[in-house]
Computed example of a mutant assay.
Amino acid sequence: MYRTLAALSISTALALSGASFAVDYSDDIRKNDYKWMTFNVMQSIDNKIPFGFQDDTYFEMEFGGRSGWLDVYGYLDVFDLFNSSNSDRNKPEGGGPEDFADNFFFKFAPRLSIDGMTGKDLSFGPVQELYISTVTNVGDQALFEHYIGIGSDIQVPWFGKMGLNTYARYVRENFGAENEGEWDGYMVSTNWFKPWYTLDSGHFVTYQGYLDYKFGASKISDGINRTTTAVEWFNGIYYHMPQWAFGYGLKYYHNMALFKDGGFAGDTTGFGHYLSVNYKF
């Protein structure tokens, strides 16, 4: 649901922007290793999460890194950080079970480098490296889904190094929907982190974000409220300091989480806004 790529260190930014050559594992599989972690306070405004969860202040722990042939990204969001009555995630007084919002959302996205595991340079054209890519999404109210497929790091003009992954989707839990226990749909995703202006102080400004396109989800028969395609497109401008980052993100949703806009899930298409303060470790 949420992902910001919000507060990478300068060394990680350089690792993500990358040089225009393939990763070399021939002499030392560990020489490309790095790691990072941030604590983020996020404010969502006019979000398009299904069932009206538009505005909330929440905490996010975000992490990533590389260890040999294992590339990892993930985050944990804990909602309604200040137990505020103004949050759409706040539990209503006297509400029934149907009124209780999720308390957290967890994404874990390890990728296994095929180049690293085989010791071979599999780069070609703009493709620097190939992966077996996975994603697991977990919510605390019966959401549990897995994605697995082929991933890559590619070189793109101006952007530099970007991730590009294609997955098949397996639905483990989906609030009791009929596609639970089924392979249902696919996702193509990309992400980027582009430092585009650096100050004399070493502080820098980035354009960073991601695009997820889901399609082919056809095993729920409710065509009035469900859809087979969905889009999430996050565009963030962040100001990075050595240990802090401050950002604004504009996110476009189309049928968020495969719920049709205007159906029983409410408003799931349109633009939302994010403000963030990030502390880097």
Score class of each variant (00 low, 15 high):
121 D>N: 12
221 S>L: 13
3 R>D: 06
3 R>W: 06
124 F>C: 11
1 M>G: 13
135 V>Q: 10
90 N>V: 09
89 R>T: 05
27 D>L: 11
98 E>L: 13
174 N>C: 13
61 M>R: 05
242 P>H: 12
199 L>W: 11
138 V>M: 15
181 G>P: 02
120 K>V: 13
151 G>M: 03
255 N>I: 01
76 L>M: 07
169 R>F: 14
58 Y>S: 03
215 F>Q: 01
222 D>N: 08
20 S>R: 06
139 G>V: 07
210 Y>K: 08
108 F>Q: 02
242 P>N: 03
207 Y>F: 11
53 F>G: 09
218 S>V: 15
27 D>P: 11
205 V>Y: 06
79 F>W: 00
143 L>S: 12
200 D>K: 11
120 K>A: 12
27 D>Y: 13
36 W>R: 04
195 P>C: 07
82 F>K: 13
280 K>C: 02
248 Y>E: 02
56 D>A: 05
246 F>Q: 11
162 M>Q: 03
226 R>L: 08
257 A>N: 07
126 P>M: 03
206 T>F: 04
259 F>H: 02
71 D>F: 06
53 F>N: 10
149 G>T: 03
33 D>E: 09
157 P>G: 12
32 N>C: 14
272 G>P: 03
33 D>G: 13
265 A>P: 04
276 S>E: 11
1 M>C: 14
193 F>R: 02
88 D>T: 10
27 D>R: 09
263 G>Y: 00
280 K>D: 03
142 A>W: 13
261 D>V: 03
39 F>L: 11
185 G>R: 00
262 G>I: 01
278 N>E: 14
247 G>S: 01
20 S>M: 15
122 L>N: 04
110 P>T: 12
19 A>K: 13
210 Y>A: 08
40 N>I: 02
57 T>F: 02
91 K>P: 09
138 V>K: 13
55 D>Y: 03
51 F>A: 05
92 P>Y: 09
14 L>T: 08
26 S>C: 08
141 Q>L: 15
157 P>R: 10
263 G>F: 03
79 F>Y: 01
73 Y>M: 05
257 A>Q: 05
90 N>P: 09
147 Y>L: 13
271 F>M: 12
49 I>H: 03
264 F>Y: 14
30 R>L: 09
268 T>C: 01
94 G>L: 09
170 Y>E: 06
133 S>W: 01
155 Q>P: 10
214 K>Y: 13
194 K>E: 10
104 F>E: 05
147 Y>T: 11
25 Y>I: 06
70 L>N: 02
261 D>K: 02
54 Q>L: 15
107 K>W: 14
32 N>I: 09
115 D>Y: 00
259 F>V: 00
